[in-house]
């Protein structure tokens, strides 16, 4: 995937874009077919990877494309989860529609918070999103209507594993569609202009607020849908888990570990985070410390993420080969 993109995350040619789209479709098909050739366990891990990847891609859409570094992923995830369970329990809407409503709820949350949050720049925005997420969690803990600290249970049986995987794959397809639009359409220059220098962009007629709002809303919608899918799988949600800081940290660390603003960053990062969490969980004494150490080492020695590191090594090897010949 990375090969067809320039470092700036933009497809260079129309042909490149088509190739990328083709590659993504193949990847999605492979995911959807996974239950056929994978066992239960691998399918579960793949599901976790897909949900994580959607969050990471959405987070990257905000941070990597428009410079909105958020610590508020959990607010959209939690909201999506609650909307999904609430609607499934209290309405006769079909699941697909419920997921769409959950996504819309995420977008509405973003649109509601935007007039305030968007006034903040840089660090302030980051801290603002964190405060929003915490405030929402505290509201949910105290809101008896929504189950308070005990949370909500899904009345019906959740879909089986393979169906869940298909839903997650569908969500990833939607996510990639959004990203292809952000990458390939004329919109992409606007996004990058806003990220580079918002004031200048404004002076060139870019309605930067709307651009940022669109990105924030789209990312929140995707995150909320991911939260919905996660809640659907759990069948039981409570505010500490659904609105937990962990979601925010996960999304952020996936992208940072993979490589911020790098097209393949979220994929690599999500794979590394999900797989390492799974492997390390077998060593309960050490896994937390190891996770921390891994993060520190990554930051120190691969500041552009694993994708950046790989690209550097690749470039150096080519250079060496060039020198040799």
């Amino acid at each position: 995937m990375a090969a067809t993109f320039t470092e700036h995350g933009r497809a260079t040619t129309r042909r490149g874009l088509l190739l990328t789209a083709g590659g993504l479709v193949v990847a999605l098909a492979a995911c959807a077919a996974a239950p056929l050739y994978f066992g239960d366990y691998e399918t579960q891990i793949l599901f976790r990877f897909l949900v994580g990847l959607v969050l990471a891609e959405a987070w990257n859409l905000m941070a990597g494309y428009t410079g909105l570094v958020s610590l508020g992923t959990s607010s959209a995830v939690g909201l999506g989860g609650y909307v999904l369970i609430g609607l499934l329990n209290h309405s006769a809407l079909p699941l697909g529609l419920v997921l769409v409503v959950a996504a819309v709820a995420g977008a509405v949350l973003a649109a509601t918070a935007a007039p305030g949050l968007m006034r903040l720049r840089g660090l302030y925005f980051t801290v603002g999103t964190l405060a929003l997420a915490e405030a929402l969690r505290l509201v949910m803990i105290n809101a008896e209507r929504f189950g308070g600290a005990s949370g909500l249970f899904l009345d019906r049986e959740p879909p089986v594993q393979s169906e869940l995987l298909w839903i997650a794959t569908g969500l990833l397809a939607a996510t990639w569609l959004v990203l292809l639009l952000a990458d390939g359409s004329r919109l992409s220059v606007l996004l990058r202009a806003v990220r580079d220098d918002e004031d200048v962009a404004a002076q060139l007629g870019v309605r930067s607020y709307r651009v940022k709002l669109a990105v924030f809303a789209a990312a929140s919608a995707l995150m909320a849908a991911a939260g919905g899918v996660q809640a659907l799988k759990l069948g039981a949600i409570e505010p500490y888990g659904m609105f937990g800081l962990r979601w925010s940290i996960d999304a952020l660390s996936m992208v940072i570990i993979g490589g911020l603003g790098q097209r393949a960053g979220p994929v690599v990062g999500a794979a590394v985070v999900v797989i390492s969490a799974e492997l390390l969980a077998d060593y309960p004494e050490a896994h937390l410390a190891l996770t921390g150490v891994l993060l520190i080492v990554m930051m120190r020695f691969a500041p552009r993420g694993l994708v950046g590191l790989g690209a550097d090594i690749w470039a150096r090897r080519r250079l060496m080969r060039g020198v040799a010949s």
Binding site: V189, L190, R192, A193, L204, G205, R207
Partner: peptide, 23 residues
């Protein structure tokens, strides 16, 4: 701008494209 503020990560051509797209 008195002190130029180009979009550093874009090509020269893309810098102009921003203005065109938004205009």
């Amino acid at each position: 701008y008195q002190i130029p503020r180009p979009f550093l990560d874009m090509t020269v051509d893309e810098n102009l494209e921003v203005a065109q797209t938004a205009s």
